[in-house]
């Protein structure tokens, strides 16, 4: 049985890109939600966008559960 090198490349690329993308989203949300110096919380569009990005991450988690459960696909 030969080694499935293509699968190996796919796994490697998807792992690295996927992990960095998710952490980038988290970092973006965190950057948006960190209040400026002297303020108690982020204001206006920053808060809205920050929570929007967190919602997007929730969708990614749901997609991960979808991939994990064979019943769903």
């Amino acid at each position: 049985m030969g080694i499935d090198w293509w699968a190996l490349v796919q796994v490697s690329v998807v792992t690295i890109v996927g992990a960095m993308a998710i952490v980038s989203l988290m970092s973006l949300a965190n950057w948006l939600l960190v209040p400026p110096d002297g303020a108690s919380q982020a204001v206006g569009w920053r808060r809205f966008s920050g929570y929007g990005v967190i919602g997007l991450m929730g969708l990614i988690v749901a997609f991960g559960i979808y991939l994990l459960v064979p019943y769903f696909h």
Partner: peptide
Amino acid sequence: VAGLASYGATKIAYRSFRDSSKGSKKRF
């Protein structure tokens, strides 16, 4: 592979992480 992904992800995470911010810690 996991190490490379984690290495890059850590570099990204620390770009926005504020150790002094309670909210930042809580979110991570």
